[in-house]
């Protein structure tokens, strides 16, 4: 077994997970006219009211974080694959990998914090 097999297997698994997560995300956000899901405040799925309604639910906060993590891994690993196919020098390839890992972790941290903060704000707003 080698790292290539491991990372690629999880890349595929992440793709399959995204199929369901992003599929649901797309249905909610962009197919509001045809399938009216999780948007009780009017037909505009991305309105402030509907966004806050979803933010108030732990389910959505968790799926946002999941989607972000899985999406970043799938996307950044895909980008790394493309970049490394340019026959980079080993040192450059390592730098690219390190940079992408940092970008991924940074954005995941920031996005997760925001999703959870929006969740707590929405709950507080709902109570108030």
């Amino acid at each position: 077994m080698s790292n290539g097999t491991k990372f690629w297997t999880w890349h595929m698994a992440a793709g399959v997970a995204l199929l369901f997560l992003l599929g649901l995300h797309m249905l909610i956000m962009h197919f509001g006219g045809s399938v009216h899901l999780f948007a009780p405040h009017g037909s505009e799925a991305v309105s402030v009211e509907n966004s806050q309604w979803r933010d108030a639910h732990t389910f959505f906060a968790i799926t946002y974080i999941l989607m972000l993590g899985v999406g970043l891994y799938h996307g950044l690993y895909g980008l790394r694959t493309i970049l490394l196919e340019l026959t980079l020098k080993p040192a450059v390839a390592k730098t690219v990998t390190a940079f992408l890992v940092l970008v991924g972790l940074g954005l995941f941290g920031f996005g997760s914090w925001a999703a959870w903060a929006a969740h707590t704000i929405a709950i507080a707003g709902g109570k108030g």
Binding site: S51, D55, G75, L76, L107, F110, G111, A114, A115, I121
Partner: peptide, 15 residues
């Protein structure tokens, strides 16, 4: 991927 990076920042601003 490019969209995801921007989307994360834009939607996080709702905080």
């Amino acid at each position: 991927l490019l969209y995801l990076l921007m989307h994360t920042v834009v939607t996080s601003l709702r905080v």
